[in-house]
């Protein structure tokens, strides 16, 4: 909690410095923050519900055996596919990852999930194709899937 408070204080101090220098732009910052909150609010509520339910699921003894089954190659595969399909901002992916880490899931698999979540986006591939071309989109996403797994395996070994 203290680090969150410190973080907020530092940001507030920086903001005040900018606000005093240019109050018009300072107001734009507030408007932008308010609009961001409005845009992410539904997702935020979904994630909060998911975090509560995850605790119930992970508190079940039977799930532990289930998780062990997914700690090998199959876990990496599930994580990379899940990450590619689901589309959530990074700052929300981290608390979910933290919850999984607490539940005893292999850090390597969490790294795969996070890397895949942030780098591979099946839903936005049409935008990528339109702007940068089919080859760019396909190769970048395929490489990202491959490297997400490699990054996770390396992190799992080193962690």
């Amino acid at each position: 909690m203290n680090s969150a408070l410190t973080f907020n204080m530092i940001v507030l101090a920086v903001f005040l410095v900018f606000y005093i220098r240019n109050s018009k732009k300072g107001k734009e910052v507030i408007i932008s923050a308010a609009r961001s909150l409005k845009a992410i609010a539904p997702l935020l509520i979904i994630i909060i519900i998911a975090l509560i339910f995850m605790q119930v699921i992970f508190s079940e003894k039977s799930i532990t055996g289930y998780i062990n089954e997914f700690s090998g190659p199959r876990g990496y595969l599930v994580a990379v596919i899940f990450g590619a399909i689901i589309h959530i901002p990074m700052f929300i992916a981290f608390p979910v990852g933290g919850q999984l880490l607490q539940a005893g899931i292999n850090p390597g698999i969490i790294a795969v999930l996070i890397t895949s979540l942030v780098m591979v986006h099946f839903i936005t591939i049409p935008v990528e194709i339109k702007e940068l071309g089919l080859k760019f989109a396909v190769i970048r996403n395929l490489l990202s899937i491959l490297f997400a797994v490699v990054i996770g395996i390396i992190l799992g070994v080193l962690y």
Partner: peptide, 21 residues
């Protein structure tokens, strides 16, 4: 963890606003 997300949120959103503006 939920309280922590919400605790970081105001600073985070302002920081993103600062970057954007």
């Amino acid at each position: 963890s939920i309280i922590l997300i919400l605790a970081y949120l105001p600073g985070f959103l302002i920081l993103m606003g600062l970057f954007e503006v």
